[in-house]
């Protein structure tokens, strides 16, 4: 198989398989998780301004008071790489084209050089986060194979995408194929690893927020 065939496979059957497993996994896991149900809270609720599941879904994106100071790397690094990933995925021209091809939705792209810069910053932030995971006692203690693995599969698409655009290491065609393949691996493992938090965090925040909202506590 030559690199153009690899690329065509990645864009064709590979993408089909990856998106298929992704959709399958996401639906399966979401249904499996949320059909477990929960008991109705029978205690008389108390109402308070700013306390609801929806409030918490949004509020939890901000660092709680004092926490930024306690764990600056987690917050600044975390914000940087999450926002960076979002910019690259949703504002890079080739990615918008992919989304538009799959969904019909389209919007203007950012200049390629800016995306390049964001990719570099994102990778730097991810490396810092990795270093933090290695050196910070609580994080290191919690870390399992899955943590290193998911870091890698998240890092690789950014790295290969950047290398492809910069024409580094391997010919563009090969790198582009590897980039698409690495993104496909990310799609495939997402529903079955902690990366699934991209979906469940909304449910988790909502549960936490609504349970505490019944007590009148905006969390």
């Amino acid at each position: 198989m030559n690199e153009l065939q690899l690329l065509t496979w990645a864009r064709g059957p590979g993408l089909d398989i990856a998106v298929g497993i992704f959709v399958l996994g996401v639906l399966w896991r979401l249904i499996e998780i949320y059909t477990l149900g929960r008991k109705k809270d029978l205690a008389a609720p108390r109402r308070a301004a700013g306390a609801s599941g929806l409030h918490t879904v949004f509020r939890r994106s901000l660092a709680p008071p004092g926490m930024l100071k306690r764990s600056p790397v987690s917050y600044i690094g975390g914000y940087t790489f999450h926002i960076g990933l979002a910019i690259i995925v949703f504002l890079g021209a080739p990615h918008i084209l992919l989304i538009s091809n799959l969904t019909g939705l389209s919007w203007p792209a950012l200049p390629a050089q800016l995306i390049d810069l964001v990719a570099v910053v994102t990778m730097a932030a991810m490396l810092v986060m990795l270093f933090d995971r290695i050196t910070k006692p609580a994080k290191r203690f919690l870390s399992t194979f899955e943590d290193w693995f998911t870091w890698t599969v998240t890092f690789l698409p950014v790295l290969t995408g950047w290398l492809a655009v910069q024409h580094l290491l391997l010919p563009y065609t090969t790198m582009l194929a590897l980039h698409i393949l690495s993104a496909e691996i990310l799609l495939i493992v997402l529903p079955f690893t902690k990366l699934f938090h991209a979906f469940t965090l909304f449910g988790s925040r909502w549960y936490n927020g609504s349970a505490n909202a019944r007590k009148g506590v905006p969390v």
């Binding site: 690329l7 864009r11 398989i17 998106v19 298929g20 799959l102």
Partner: peptide, 13 residues
């Protein structure tokens, strides 16, 4: 078809 779009229509989804 642009290089970043699926080469084949997604059949499994």
């Amino acid at each position: 078809k642009a290089l970043s779009v699926p080469a084949d229509p997604l059949g499994f989804t």
